[in-house]
Design a protein around this nucleic acid. Structure first.
Lengths: 122, 122
DNA sequence: TTGAATGTATTAGAAGCTTATATATTATTA
DNA sequence: TAATAATATATAAGCTTCTAATACATTCAA
């Protein structure tokens, strides 16, 4: 039906992936592998958003194909791991997507007559 | 591509339609026709969100089929107009969807590390 | 009389998901 | 030691949802 039962998530997956990769990790540029991305999203949202692999991998491949991501495969503890990191263009797109999403939320708040959020608790 | 060039709108269309119909208009229960809905969305969002008819009508028909909307057709100024209004179940769903969307925005703000919105300007 | 605005509706096709499946290793538990 | 959970990447079938295009019809303004 919907991604992890949340219909609103539709169309936001690329933005989530790009944003996570744009954050500073232990390596510069930051790199993450697919499984790690799903776990990070699950942890940060306390299980509210769970990316399925069937959704994630096609997105990663598409972003790579579009030149926003590059990959490096490494063997870690006997298993193959494919790390993804942003290209310069990917970094730009990440910023743009997040800005677009903020704007979208603002527009939706107006349309649905919702109050501005004052306390979030996160 | 995306609804009115906005990929994030995916999955929010039902919520928008239900919310608009749930607001108090001149009639109780409030009723609107398809074209009116697209215009209301366009005006409220200053053109940022434009619903296409190809997206709107299937949604209206589906909501009717699900028992969330009822319709009445009237002739107004020589043209046929089909008014949609919420059933009791539709009213419940409208509230639920808006609540779900607020929760979703909160989750996304946490995930994307966005600040809480203090001033909106709308 | 021509075009813009108003109005409902369908269709073909693309895109973005879900769900199921395949494959494989390591770590834990019964 | 055998089964299962967790770790890890990936594809395929199929459904839903959207875009873009089209059809049809009326009213109003230029």
């Amino acid at each position: 039906m919907e991604p992890s039962g949340n219909e609103f998530l539709r169309g936001t997956l690329k933005t989530i992936v790009l944003k996570l990769l744009s954050e500073q990790g232990t390596s510069v540029p930051n790199r993450m592998y697919g499984y790690e991305i799903t776990q990070a999203v699950k942890e940060r949202t306390k299980g509210e958003i769970v990316l399925s692999f069937g959704a994630l991998y096609p997105i990663l491949h598409k972003l790579e194909q579009e030149g926003l991501l590059t990959t490096e495969t490494e063997e870690v503890e006997g298993r193959l791991r494919k790390y993804y990191s942003l290209t310069p263009q990917g970094t730009e797109t990440a910023v743009q997507k997040v800005t677009d999403f903020e704007r979208f939320m603002d527009t939706m708040r107006g349309l649905l007559q919702l109050p501005a959020t004052l306390a979030t608790g996160h």
